[in-house]
């Protein structure tokens, strides 16, 4: 039986390696579980989502997903650099961290639309 309070250097080394392996394996298994979950949930998604997306597409010009996002932020006639600045200004004005804001889309309003 290993004395865990007055642990020897050799045992500590073994526990360190074992611990790292457990964390790694745990997260690898979690990754597999999540991949399976995502696969199951998205199995029927494209067919169901298609009509809604088509309707949305016909109603407005195509938006370009902003680079570096999870695909949520759509940019309409907006440069990614301008979008980053706009989000930073909004966050600063509201006094909220940028990661707490959820920006769905940014669209340039032409002068004749105002």
């Amino acid at each position: 039986m290993i004395d865990l309070v007055n642990i020897s250097v050799g045992s500590a080394g073994l526990y360190a390696v074992l611990g790292y392996i457990v964390v790694f394996l745990g997260l690898v298994l979690l990754m597999c579980v999540l991949l399976i979950m995502i696969k199951i949930m998205n199995k029927n998604r494209p067919a169901a989502a298609a009509p809604a997306e088509a309707a949305a597409d016909s109603a407005q010009p195509a938006g370009v997903p902003a680079p570096g996002t999870a695909g949520e932020l759509k940019l309409y006639d907006t440069d990614p650099r301008d979008a980053a600045m706009i989000m930073a200004i909004v966050a600063d004005t509201l006094g909220k961290p940028l990661n707490e804001l959820r920006v769905i889309s940014i669209r340039e309003v032409k002068e004749d639309e105002v």
């Binding site: 250097v9 500590a12 080394g13 526990y15 360190a16 390696v17 611990g19 790292y20 964390v23 790694f24 745990g26 997260l27 690898v28 979690l30 990754m31 999540l34 991949l35 995502i38």
Partner: peptide, 20 residues
Amino acid sequence: NPKSLLLGAAAQLGVFVAFF
């Protein structure tokens, strides 16, 4: 991108090195 979990695991190295 669930593969990010691998990076979260890799970055726990310091925990076990400091323990040792």
